[in-house]
Design a binder for these strands. Sequence first.
DNA 1: TTTCCTGATGGTCAATATACCAACAGACCA
DNA 2: TGGTCTGTTGGTATATTGACCATCAGGAAA
Lengths: 110, 110
Amino acid sequence: MITLQQAEIRSGIIKAMAHPARLMIIEYLKAGTKPFSDVFGLFNLDKSTVSKHLLVLKGAGIVSSRKEGPDMMYTLEVPCITDFFGCVTAVIENNVRRQQICLCQERPAK
Amino acid sequence: MITLQQAEIRSGIIKAMAHPARLMIIEYLKAGTKPFSDVFGLFNLDKSTVSKHLLVLKGAGIVSSRKEGPDMMYTLEVPCITDFFGCVTAVIENNVRRQQICLCQERPAK
DNA sequence: TTTCCTGATGGTCAATATACCAACAGACCA
DNA sequence: TGGTCTGTTGGTATATTGACCATCAGGAAA
């Protein structure tokens, strides 16, 4: 059985992924190292907000950064992270099947 | 590229995992269906707190519940979730290697 | 030097998450 | 009918998160 301390460390990593913007950043960096400006361009968010999201991912060890000329380059350190999304998708599909959530439209009132 | 809507749905699942107690519950239920009382016994937490954690996991579709006699039985619906922990462990080990965190003891002051 | 350009940091505020205790609800037993 | 066992729900207090704006810091260009 996993200890509470182990669970806390793990949840630190998972918390870092638990935000839509950060998931999008992870997906985006899967294609390779990108400059901050490209990541920023994905969102309608303040620069500071995007910077902080990247800081969270960096703090968790999921991405790394390195200065390159005027740009700050961000790299996904642990690509296996994205393998997990397959399972998350399985959860979502299972939920849809069980009609716990519906992505298409409301069910007609009975 | 993943859409914002997809990212929001995914992050809902991941948020549900992003708590030490809920990670421990997931690990625990990997061994099979268990009654509430067993899950409760893992923690020094109020009954209501454990019940709410289970509700979060259930809401995300990660576990399901079913009444069995006097007990409420909880089942892990998506065992692939735990495969992910291998990657999380890889992140942690990478962090340790890079000395971003240290599980053993403080480095001597230089 | 002064002026950009790039991105990080600090402050603040609203929303969310998480814990506890207390009270409740359903099933079964006395 | 009341008591007990099981787990859930409601209320509340506190901590954390995430957004914005404003400001700052470092390097390149004028």
